[in-house]
Amino acid sequence: MSGISEEYLCAVLGKIAVANHITDWSYNQLKFTSIAQNYFGILIPVVLSGTRNGKEVKFELVLKLAPTNELYRVSGAVTVMFAREVFVYSVVLKKYQEMQEHLSLDAQYVIPRCYYFQKDYCKEVIALQDMCGDSYKPYTHEMFLDLDHTLVSLKSLAKLHALSFILQNQNPQLYEEISKTCVPLTEDTNKRYMDIMRDRLDKALKKFEGTTYTPLLHKLRQNCAELFNAAVNSVNKTCICHGDIWKENILYKYEDNKPVSACMIDYQTTRICSPAFDTMYLIISSTSTDLRNQNFYQLLDTYRRTFDETLKKFGLESEKVYSRQMFENDLKVVSPACLVTANTALWLSNGLQEEGHVRSKVVWNTDDEKEKAVNRYKCIVKAMIDDLTSYGYLSVSEIL
């Protein structure tokens, strides 16, 4: 079980039971072969049952545990990511939940409940509500989201961003404190990840060698750090952003087989950035070029409408807080950084990252399989570049 023993698991659950005043507790979990392992830790779905205040209770949980083996932590990324996510759940999302209590359920930003957390080195734990118990499911049957899923996702993202602006208006001191922890992505704050993105651009340059895309990719590689600085320092407004919002970090709830609600998860990279970055990254990383070409402006309109409506519920006017024109201008500023980030994710998700601590989950066994994966990766990257160029958000001459 990747170093997580049943004895250790019982000890963790015992602490969760104490924190939630549960006695006479027991638990059920999935078989070890069903437990998800990723670079930032181990996910274990658990049902914790017991007695509280004389009544029988049952909690459906997902435990996020840090690897206890320090070999997985050599880069320091795990420690930083866990600390960031604990902070987001215990401070940021907790405050958002309080702020939106007066709203109807369909107007609220969906937040999994956090039952317990521990921050001790190599013993980090976050115990979260298992949203699957509330009928939320991951989108796993296609590489890209369809229109309905994309629209629901953008509505949820708009609520997240609006809550940040509302918090800044209501409690600027707390917002400032949050900003000191959820720092922007720059060369100074996360050089290792910046190096990874430059490495993936080097790999892209090799795959696109001799094509019309080479000058653009070279410019992105040359100015990588500056592009991410621009996404914070050259935009009209910033807020508390998710930082890694694509389809793999979203769960969906359905009625009559149609998505009606989205729940965003995995807040390890939450940071101060332009809301335009989250928005554009979600669109280019999680939709096909056909969907974008047919619905791009509808996607932006949907995001803005929900953003405006959420602010209005708190007595704020979007045109004064963060206007549509500001948003449009910022989309152009952040698009190069979004493309760099998407290239990094696509290289990994297409099974092409074969070395390093973070490797592709998919492993190709033959040269033919790998060639097909490379061609698929190139087609997706080409489409992203072509689409961003056609929308006026990307050009070689305007990249710094």
Rank of each mutant, 00 (worst) to 15 (best):
V396K: 13
Q118V: 01
E319L: 08
G41D: 11
S5T: 15
L227R: 11
S164G: 15
V125I: 13
F87N: 12
S5V: 05
V18D: 14
A83K: 12
V321T: 08
E101N: 10
F165M: 09
L352H: 08
E226T: 06
E142V: 00
M131F: 09
A19S: 10
E355F: 00
E70I: 07
C379E: 14
V57F: 02
L93Q: 08
D290T: 13
T270E: 01
F277H: 07
H357N: 12
T150Q: 05
G133E: 10
A231K: 02
G356R: 06
S104L: 13
V321M: 03
M264S: 03
L201K: 02
G41I: 07
Q268Y: 07
G356K: 02
D290R: 11
L151G: 01
K94N: 14
Q353W: 00
L61S: 03
T287A: 07
K313W: 02
Q168K: 15
L43H: 13
V381M: 09
K180S: 14
A66K: 06
S104F: 06
E177A: 12
L63G: 11
V321L: 04
L167W: 06
T212N: 07
H141I: 09
Y72V: 12
L300I: 10
K253R: 12
A11Y: 08
E371M: 15
D386V: 07
I166A: 10
N20M: 05
V12S: 01
G392V: 07
S90A: 14
Y297M: 07
G133S: 15
P67Y: 15
A383C: 05
L394I: 04
L201Q: 02
N233I: 07
L227C: 10
L282S: 01
E309F: 01
L205Y: 02
R271E: 12
E317A: 10
S153R: 06
V358G: 02
W347H: 13
I42S: 10
I265T: 07
K247P: 00
K58G: 13
A231Y: 05
F296C: 01
Y136S: 08
Q37H: 14
L394S: 02
H242S: 08
K247L: 06
A276G: 09
E248T: 08
E354Q: 03
V232I: 09
T140N: 14
A83V: 00
G243D: 03
V78E: 15
K312M: 11
L201I: 04
Q325I: 06
V86G: 00
I245K: 09
A17K: 02
T214L: 11
P45K: 14
A231Q: 03
A19E: 13
K253E: 10
Y297P: 01
Y27S: 05
V183K: 15
P259V: 04
A158W: 06
E209I: 01
P259H: 01
W246L: 04
R292Y: 04
D120G: 00
